[in-house]
Amino acid sequence: MSILIDKKTTVLVTGITGSSGMLQTKAMLDAGTKIVAGVTPGKAGREVYGVPVYDFISDAKKEHEFDTVISFVPPKFAMDSCFEAIDAGIRLLVLTTEQIPLQEIVKIVGYARAHNTIIIGPGCAGTIVPGMCKVGSHPIQFFKPGNVGIVSKSGALSYEIGKTLSDNDIGQSQVVAIGGGPIWGFTQKDAIQHYEEDPDTKIIVLLGEIGGGSEEVAAAYIRKHVNKPVVALIVGRNAPKGKNLGHAGAIVTGNIGTATTKIAALNEAGAIVVKSPADLVKKIQELEKQI
C-alpha cells in the first residue's frame, strides 16, 4: 500500500479536452491509471482516448465511481472547478494549474480542508507510484518500484532525482511533487507524515527549496514524530537574494527562507542533509545496507 494513490484509485480528469489535459490523460492511461471520466463544460458526449466527457462532475458521478480528480483547468476557471470537485465528495484533488491568484488559492485550500478533501498543488506535477499508476505528469521512464518515498516542491527536480536514483538501482515507493508554493494544500510535512506511516517506504527523501518556512515546519515534525531515515536536499543555496527563481515561493527576503536556516533546522531534527544528487545516492546506499 502506498500513500495517496494505489491500484484501486479511480480518477476523473477536469479540463480533459485542453492540450495538457489530453496529453496527460494519454500518459496516465499508459501508466496504468484508471481514468473513468473527464469533464469540460460544453463538451459532453465527446471522448478523449476512450474516456467519456461530461459537462459537470455531478453528471459523471451518475455513471461512474471515482475518488480522485486531477485538474488541468486554466487559471481563470480553476477555483470554481475545484469547488465543483470538492462538492462531489472526492478524497483527493491534484491541482496542476499554475498562476491562480493567491487569494483564490487560499479559498481553494480552505474549502478543501473544510470538506476533508486532500489537495495536492496548486501548480504541481502530482504523484506517481512507480510500476503501478500516477495522477500527474511524472514521466514513467524515470522511475522504478522500490522503497524510497520522495516529496519535492518542484516537478522537474522530482523527475531528476527519481532518474538519478533509478539509474543507480534505487527504486521508489512513491513520488509526490507538491508545487512551488507559496501556499499549498498537501505540504512537505503531510507527505513525510504519510511516508512515516506507509509500510512500503523505508527511506524518506525531502527535496526542498529556498523561500518560505515549509522545510522548517517539516523539520519540526521530523524531530518529534519520524523514526525512518530522512535524507534532505535543499536547492537554491547559491541563489541571489530577493530574486524569484522561477517558482513563486522560491524567494529569499531578508533572513527569511534562506538555505542556511532550513539546513540547520533539518540537521537539528536528525535528518541527513546532502548537497548534491551524487551524495544523495551515496547516503541512500549506505542506509539501505543498514536496513
Binding site: L157, E160, L245
Partner: peptide, 16 residues
Amino acid sequence: SDGAGTGMMSLDLLYD
C-alpha cells in the same frame, strides 16, 4: 534549465 528546481540545483552544483 527546463525546471525551476533543477535550475536551482544546477546553480548550486556549479558554485560548488
